[in-house]
Write a protein that binds this DNA or RNA. Structure first.
Lengths: 189, 189
DNA sequence: AAGCTCAATTGCCAAATGGCAAGAAATACA
DNA sequence: TGTATTTCTTGCCATTTGGCAATTGAGCTT
């Protein structure tokens, strides 16, 4: 919970009294490895702050093969923004790739906090656009790099994460085949 | 101006009286081909709605080579969201790649509209997150496709645009070399 | 501990893409 | 209009990456 508060403070001001309003509404939730926090076609009713574990945001093609758009891990929010905000069906899956623990807020709790905490909405707008712009930047940078550079950048940008996610998921995130990633790893030692 | 109103109505409700408040603050602006609407290191003081022309959002590497992150064209907003909102230096360039015409709103005008029009901020949050999520989806899809598929998808998704932007800029957007794009075009006829 | 299942590695070869450079075409400019 | 400059095309070849399949390895279950 303290980590969540520290995270929020990076984006705006929240005082002690307001933290209590937040604390009172946060619910602990566990999601087992392989289960989903959100599913395509369903409305995301909760926003989560990850206290432990890793999720991936992914989608499936007609053949049933999955593609990883990105990973979300400890001390970050995880949510399908448009689905949660407008209560419309989500377009993607959010899958726990390890056992995960979250603090979750229901849509109702979130709306209450909007009403009770001036600047609450602004805070989330800031977080959302900052995070999205950043992801877009990272992804579009990847497009102009070869496979090895993408992997080295990933190691740099997300230290330790490469060893916590299955190779084939990381490969699909990087836009290469599992074989290629395996060879790249070998070539780096 | 009417197109701007129609665009806004896609994301929320705005009434006739409110349109007049918007109309009163919109300024016409022309930007010549090759000039910038925003530059890295400078605060973006305006948000623009493109009535004519094409921009590209791009960055430069140490060697001075430019890379196109994406194109923005008629009937869309163009802005560095984080720079405009928080009045911080922009991280990228927004370059006119044709002569362009815009309706622009200064930060001050925009803030006034926030105060005068209930839901104005919500409207822009919606537009921003919708557009960003979409761009992220398109870009991350590109990563797992080969060059030809990326180009065909581009033709599909942005009809006519391929003929209005220089080949080398489109190539850097697609993450391939100008030579490769030229060959792909040839192979398609 | 044995067997099952799925993930990861590796070899072989084909296909895709890049690098470089020369020539052609388009565009800008005087 | 002619010339200069930039962009685009193309050929040649090297490098990267993918496809497929066999093998190895790791994790689970019994």
């Amino acid at each position: 919970m303290e980590k969540l508060f520290a995270y929020l403070l990076q984006f705006g001001h929240v005082n002690a009294q307001q933290f209590e309003l937040i604390r009172a509404r946060a619910k602990h939730k566990k999601i087992a490895k392989g289960a989903y926090f959100a599913e395509a076609g369903k409305v995301s009713a909760q926003i989560g702050y990850i206290t432990d574990g890793i999720f991936r945001v992914c989608y499936y093609d007609k053949a049933g093969d999955s593609f990883t758009r990105y990973f979300v891990y400890e001390n970050r929010f995880v949510v399908d923004v448009n689905s949660f905000r407008d209560e419309i069906p989500s377009a993607e899956y959010i899958e726990a790739i390890t056992d995960c623990q979250l603090l979750v807020f229901s849509k109702q709790d979130f709306t209450q906090l909007s009403a009770l905490i001036p600047g609450w909405d602004d805070l989330f707008v800031k977080i959302t656009s900052y995070v999205l712009e950043n992801k877009l930047k990272v992804t579009s940078n990847m497009l102009v790099q070869d496979a090895q550079k993408r992997y080295l950048n990933f190691l740099d940008h997300y230290p330790g994460l490469a060893n916590r996610v299955p190779l084939h998921m990381l490969a699909s995130y990087l836009g290469i085949t599992p074989s290629s990633l395996s060879r790249i790893r070998k070539s780096i030692h």
